[in-house]
Amino acid sequence: MAETVIHFVIYEAIKARLEEQFPGVEHSNGNNFLRCMVAGATSKTIATCVAYPHEVARTRLREEGTKYRSFFQTLLVVYQEEGRAGLYRGIGTQLIRQIPNTAIMMATYELVVYLFTN
């Protein structure tokens, strides 16, 4: 949930910045679609990097019979035993899976909103 909130806040900020720098872009020429894809991919990358330790802790807490007891205790144990790399183990795979999906989804969403409002 936190990752989704972070993603949408950053997405809207990037989208607004792109609209400031490139005013009056027509939806029909494909440039806006590509800009929405870039904004979606960039915002999802940032949100995933910020929230990934949360996902690592949640995954470790699901393991049965482990030393992990609570969220913050899990983060601390992972950091102490594995360092920063432990908090981000598997992030490459996560990004490869999520970024293209999010880029296409956000651009498609913006296109559908545009088509329904015009």
Rank of each mutant, 00 (worst) to 15 (best):
M1H: 13
M1Q: 05
E3P: 07
E3W: 06
V5D: 01
I6G: 03
H7Q: 13
H7S: 07
I10R: 04
Y11F: 15
I14S: 01
I14D: 01
I14W: 03
I14P: 02
K15A: 15
A16V: 01
A16M: 09
R17A: 15
L18R: 02
E20Q: 14
E20T: 09
E20S: 13
Q21G: 12
F22W: 12
P23F: 08
P23S: 08
V25N: 00
S28I: 02
S28Y: 05
S28P: 00
N29C: 04
N29G: 06
N31R: 02
N31C: 02
F33W: 01
L34A: 10
L34V: 12
R35I: 01
C36R: 04
V38N: 03
G40V: 04
G40P: 01
A41V: 12
A41I: 12
A41W: 10
T42L: 13
T45C: 13
T45R: 02
C49Q: 12
A51L: 09
A51Y: 09
Y52Q: 07
Y52H: 06
Y52W: 09
P53L: 05
V56E: 01
A57R: 10
R58E: 12
R58F: 09
R58C: 08
T59C: 07
T59Y: 07
R60E: 06
L61R: 10
E64A: 10
E64G: 10
T66R: 07
K67A: 14
Y68A: 08
Y68S: 05
R69T: 15
S70A: 15
S70D: 08
F71C: 10
F72P: 03
Q73L: 10
L75N: 06
L76C: 10
L76N: 14
V77W: 02
V77A: 06
E81H: 05
E82A: 08
G83A: 11
G83H: 14
G83M: 08
G83K: 11
A85W: 03
A85R: 11
G86V: 14
Q94C: 14
L95A: 02
I96D: 04
I96Q: 09
Q98P: 00
Q98E: 14
Q98A: 15
I99L: 07
I99R: 01
P100F: 02
P100D: 14
I104Y: 00
M105D: 03
M105I: 08
M105H: 04
M106C: 04
A107L: 03
T108G: 15
E110T: 01
V113S: 06
Y114P: 04
Y114W: 15
Y114F: 09
Y114L: 02
N118Q: 14
N118I: 09
N118H: 13
